[in-house]
Nucleic acid binder design. Structure first.
Ligand code: MN
Ligand code: MN
Ligand code: ZN
Ligand code: ZN
Lengths: 178, 178
DNA sequence: CGTCGAATCTTGACTGAGTCAAGATTTTGA
DNA sequence: TCAAAATCTTGACTCAGTCAAGATTCGACG
């Protein structure tokens, strides 16, 4: 037995409104979509929906585990319906495009810190940073994500590893890494 | 030979202004401080400084590698001067407090995705999520980070793993994890 | 030392992404 | 069917940060 989206919503204990169903379709249709993107899609889909309703729907759908919210630095939140698996995201430093990646290290990689500082740790969230195939092909080496004022401060060609020093590694170190 | 902060700044090719030195002192004084925190500290320190000057200074100091910016979800950016090593952050889901953690898996953990999607990956950024010792001691189990509207939607006791499904693991899985 | 151009700082308006609050509408389960 | 609860609409509002233009300061050079 397969369930309609409306049944899935009621099963989770929330009302199956036209707005929520439209939001669900928007997210299913375009992975890593922004809230504004959902607004546009859903308005085209069902004719009208308020921005607040979209934010509310995205919020409960995230809480109920039907969709996932990711919040890359420097970008508004993105939503996707790929919730069943463990996956991370790789973000292009140049153009900001986001892609899914599985993690190499088993099913719960990096889920232990060297010293947990007394915290009960239940999740390790990983964001990979790099340069996407398109930006490589176009030979782009400067970010288009910087603001004009930071670009002013930063006339030299910025090498990415200078921006994000943590866990920076040379290619051969990457090969060695577990 | 040890260098004065002013010398360090000039060495990196930027002017040693009173504002930048005050920002540097603010960050050195309180790890994981917000920009607003820096404004307050620096104003007490040198009498007056504009908010824009603080943002500008934080920006160039980050670009020059003298300080590090971290941007936890749901929090304004935080700044610290611990830049020499690889370290990550663990964030309390209940109260939002941030602590430093080293990563367990060698010096470049998680720096390889299963499939790099054609990206040139140069960094893996890890955020650990959990419950801090204080919140454990106080027996707090509900977030104080949610907004009122999301709290309205979310009457049941929220178990953290329901909020952040990625890399969720039971304790025994954590023990098994590399 | 003084000077001068570049770098930096101040001021104040402005933006994007998201939230709040109150009242109207819709959904659901009895 | 019908009311109570949940949800949606509207429009103001907030927060963190950015923009732009002009004033001030820094520091390399003479
Ligand atoms: Mn994804
Ligand atoms: Mn830190
Ligand atoms: Zn790109
Ligand atoms: Zn806490």
């Amino acid at each position: 037995m397969t369930f309609t989206p409306a049944e899935v919503l009621r099963d989770r204990g929330i009302a199956a409104t036209a707005q929520r169903l439209a939001v669900l379709r928007a997210v299913a249709n375009s992975p890593h979509i922004t809230a504004e993107g959902v607004v546009a899609f859903a308005q085209a889909d069902i004719g009208a929906i308020s921005r607040q309703a979209v934010y509310d729907a995205l919020g409960v759908l995230v809480n109920k585990g039907l969709i996932r919210r990711i919040q890359p630095v420097g970008s508004p939140a993105l939503y996707e319906d790929r919730v069943a698996d463990n996956h991370h995201h790789v973000i292009c430093r140049i153009c900001g495009v986001v892609a899914d990646v599985d993690c190499a290290v088993g099913s719960t990689p990096c889920l232990r810190a060297a010293d947990d500082m007394g915290y009960e740790i239940d999740e390790a969230e990983v964001a990979y940073w790099g340069r996407c195939p398109t930006c490589q092909a176009e030979g782009r080496t400067t970010t288009v994500l910087d603001t004009p004022s930071s670009r002013r401060q930063n006339q030299r060609r910025t090498r990415p590893e200078e921006l994000h020093p943590t866990h920076t590694a040379k290619p051969e170190e990457i090969s060695r890494a577990i």
